[in-house]
Computed example of a mutant assay.
Amino acid sequence: MGGGRRKKLLLSKIYPFTCGKASFRDDHSQIGRPGYSRVVFCNEQDNFEAGIRKYADNYVSTTKYTPATFLPKSLFEQFRRVANFYFLVAGTLAFTPLAPYSAVSAIIPLIVIIGATMVKEGIEDWRRKQQLDCL
């Protein structure tokens, strides 16, 4: 360590806010220099600069499905469950002559369970969308 002088810490260097100074001009010519920050336009859609920039909206969707993606996504979610996948495999094997039971007795309960669960998820998603629309 050198034997140089220590610089004295000035509060004006720590807190560069210069709100009370008379040198602030209305034309914002000091922006970008030390002690000044940028100008932000909040919720001013009429502003020219806000029109130039294509800001992203703040839309948030809490729903899981859309009308176009309900069937594929719901089926994917149903067969991710191990029990449903097991009964799907057992139902498809029931179509072979090796199965001791008929294919209808294996597939119908699976269709009923998956259908009821899909209807339940659809109603929940629709109610979630209705709550979001009310806000």
Rank of each mutant, 00 (worst) to 15 (best):
E49Y: 11
I113Q: 08
I113R: 13
P97Y: 07
L71K: 12
N47Y: 03
C42T: 06
D57Y: 07
R127W: 12
R25V: 09
T69V: 02
C134R: 13
F17D: 06
V82G: 04
E124R: 11
R33H: 10
K129T: 01
Q131T: 04
P34Y: 00
F17R: 07
S29D: 09
P97G: 04
Q45N: 15
F76L: 15
R33I: 03
F95E: 14
D26E: 13
P100H: 09
P16I: 00
T96C: 02
A103K: 02
G51A: 03
Y65W: 02
R38L: 03
C19P: 04
D46K: 09
R6G: 10
A22T: 07
N84S: 09
P97W: 05
A116V: 04
G2L: 11
N43A: 11
N43Y: 13
M1I: 01
L132H: 10
Y65F: 13
I52V: 12
F76N: 12
K13G: 02
A50H: 04
W126N: 08
T92L: 15
Y86D: 14
D125F: 06
K21I: 00
N43M: 08
E77V: 02
E121G: 03
T96W: 07
F70I: 05
V39G: 01
Y36T: 05
I14T: 04
C42N: 13
I52P: 00
Y59D: 04
T92K: 07
R5S: 12
I123F: 14
T62W: 05
I107M: 15
R6F: 12
L71A: 14
D125S: 07
S37Q: 12
D26Y: 08
G2M: 10
T96G: 07
D46P: 01
L132T: 06
K13A: 10
T92W: 05
H28W: 11
N43W: 09
Q131E: 13
G4V: 06
F85P: 01
L135F: 03
P16V: 00
A68H: 13
F79C: 01
I14E: 06
G20L: 10
R6H: 11
T66S: 14
F76G: 14
E121A: 04
H28V: 01
W126F: 15
I14N: 00
M1R: 10
W126M: 13
L135E: 08
I111E: 10
V40Q: 03
T92G: 05
A106E: 08
L88T: 03
N58L: 15
E124H: 03
R5F: 06
F41R: 04
F85L: 15
L10D: 09
Q30M: 11
A68S: 15
L135Y: 09
D26M: 05
A50E: 11
T117P: 00
E49S: 10
G51C: 07
Q78R: 08
N58M: 14
Y15A: 00
A83E: 14
K129Y: 12
Y59N: 09
I107N: 07
Y36F: 08
K64T: 14
F76E: 14
L88N: 04
T18L: 06
L71C: 04
Y15C: 00
I108K: 12
A103P: 03
N43D: 15
L135V: 12
P67C: 13
Y101M: 06
A106C: 08
A56E: 08
P109K: 02
S12P: 01
I113C: 06
S29T: 05
T66F: 08
T63N: 10
R127Y: 13
R33V: 02
F70P: 02
W126K: 12
R25P: 01
